[in-house]
Simulated assay, not measured.
Amino acid sequence: MKAEHINPFIISVCKVMKDMCMLDLKIGKPSMSNGSYPAETSIIKLGIVGNLEGEVVLNIDHPTALQIVSKMMMGPVETIDALGQSAISELGNMVAGNAATVFANSNIMIDITPPSYYAGADYKATVPEWFSIPFSSDAGNLSIDIYIKE
Rank of each mutant, 00 (worst) to 15 (best):
K149G: 04
K149I: 09
V95N: 05
P30H: 01
K29Y: 07
A39R: 03
D111Y: 00
G54M: 04
I10L: 08
K15C: 07
M74E: 07
T126C: 03
P128T: 04
I11R: 10
I110P: 08
S143C: 06
S36V: 13
F9R: 07
S137M: 07
F9Q: 03
A82H: 15
M74D: 15
D81H: 12
F135D: 01
N107R: 08
A125L: 04
G84I: 02
A125T: 08
N59K: 09
N141C: 01
G35C: 04
V102F: 14
T101G: 02
M109H: 07
S106V: 07
P38Y: 03
N51E: 07
K18P: 10
M1Q: 12
A121P: 00
S106K: 05
M20Q: 12
G120D: 02
V16S: 09
K18C: 03
A100H: 03
G92N: 01
E150K: 14
D24M: 06
D24P: 04
T126A: 09
S36T: 12
M17K: 08
S136M: 15
C14T: 03
I60C: 13
K2D: 13
A121T: 12
A39N: 12
I112A: 11
S33I: 06
Q85W: 07
I44T: 00
N51R: 09
S70E: 13
I148G: 01
G50Q: 14
L83K: 03
A39P: 08
S12F: 01
I110C: 03
T64D: 06
I108T: 04
S137I: 10
S31M: 11
N107Q: 01
M1Y: 13
M74A: 10
I10E: 02
A125N: 13
S116C: 12
Y117K: 00
E90C: 07
E129T: 04
A139Y: 03
T126L: 02
K18S: 08
I112D: 04
P38E: 06
I144L: 15
I43C: 03
Y147H: 00
S116R: 14
P63N: 12
S42G: 14
I60N: 13
V95A: 09
C14S: 09
E150G: 15
V102E: 09
M32C: 12
K45E: 15
I44A: 02
